[in-house]
C-alpha cells in the first residue's frame, strides 16, 4: 500500500484550502516578519540618528525606480492572467502570460543592475553610510526574492508544466501559490519604494 497525502489538489472541505495554499500563506507570514524586522531596523536607525546621512529622493534615481514599480505591478497582473488562463484550460495562453511575467521581472533586475552599478561607479557602497547600508541590504534581499521568483516561474513555465497533462488541478494550484508569492514580492517593493526612494 502506498502513502496517501490528501488535499494535494482539492481543498480540504473543513479548512477550504489545499495543503500547498495553507503552506504558502504560512511561508508568507514568516516573510512578513523577515521584512518587518528590516523595516523596523530602518525606522529605528533613522529615528535615532541625529543626522540621517542621505535622503533617497536626493541620491537615488527615482524615475528608474518608478519604472521598476510599474514593471512589478504589471507582472503581478500578468501572473494573475496566467493563472486565469489555466482556469480556462488554455495552456498556451498561460505560457504567454507567464513568459511576460518573467520578462518583466528580468526588466526589473536589469534596471536594478544599472542602479547598482551607477552607485558603485560613484563609489557609494554599503559601507559608505547607514543609508546606503539599508538601501543595499533591503533592495538586495528583495532582489534575491525576485531571482527566486524568476527561477520558480521559469520552472513552472518549462519542465514543470508537464504536470498540466497529468494533474491539471494540482498544477493550477501551484501557479496560484507562485502568484501569491509574486504578489508578496511586489508588495514588499511597494513598501520599499517610498521608504527608500521618496522619504
Amino acid at each position: 500500500m502506498s502513502v496517501i497525502i490528501p488535499y494535494i489538489d482539492k481543498p480540504n472541505p473543513v479548512t477550504g484550502v489545499t495543503n500547498a495554499k495553507l503552506g504558502i500563506w504560512l511561508f508568507l507570514a514568516s516573510e512578513v516578519m523577515l521584512f518587518g524586522a528590516l523595516f523596523s531596523t530602518l525606522i529605528i536607525l533613522r529615528s535615532s540618528a541625529t543626522d540621517w546621512p542621505a535622503h533617497g529622493s536626493d541620491v537615488l534615481n527615482v524615475p528608474l525606480a518608478t519604472l521598476n514599480t510599474v514593471f512589478l505591478i504589471t507582472s503581478s497582473v500578468t501572473i494573475v492572467l496566467s493563472w486565469a488562463s489555466l482556469k480556462m484550460k488554455n495552456l498556451m495562453k498561460f505560457k504567454l502570460h507567464m513568459g511576460l511575467t518573467v520578462l518583466l521581472s528580468f526588466g526589473f533586475l536589469i534596471i536594478k543592475y544599472f542602479e547598482y552599478s551607477s552607485k558603485f561607479h560613484h563609489e557609494h557602497y554599503p559601507s559608505t553610510s547607514t543609508f546606503y547600508a539599508v538601501y543595499f541590504t533591503m533592495t538586495g534581499l528583495h532582489g534575491l526574492h525576485v531571482i527566486g521568483g524568476i527561477i520558480t516561474n521559469l520552472y513552472l513555465m518549462g519542465p514543470g508544466s508537464k504536470m498540466w497533462k497529468t494533474e491539471p488541478e494540482r498544477f493550477t494550484g501551484r501557479i496560484e501559490c507562485a502568484g501569491l508569492y509574486w504578489h508578496f514580492v511586489d508588495l514588499v517593493w511597494i513598501f520599499l519604494f517610498p521608504a527608500l526612494y521618496l522619504l
Binding site: 516578519m33 523577515l34 531596523t41 554599503p126 547600508a133 541590504t137 534581499l141
Partner: peptide
C-alpha cells in the same frame, strides 16, 4: 525566527561588507 534571520544578515553585512548597522 525571521527577525533573527534579518538580524543575522545585518550582522553578516557589518562583518563582511563593512556596514554599521
Amino acid at each position: 525566527f525571521p527577525p533573527l534571520e534579518a538580524a543575522g544578515v545585518l550582522q553578516l553585512m557589518d562583518r563582511l561588507a563593512g556596514t554599521s548597522f
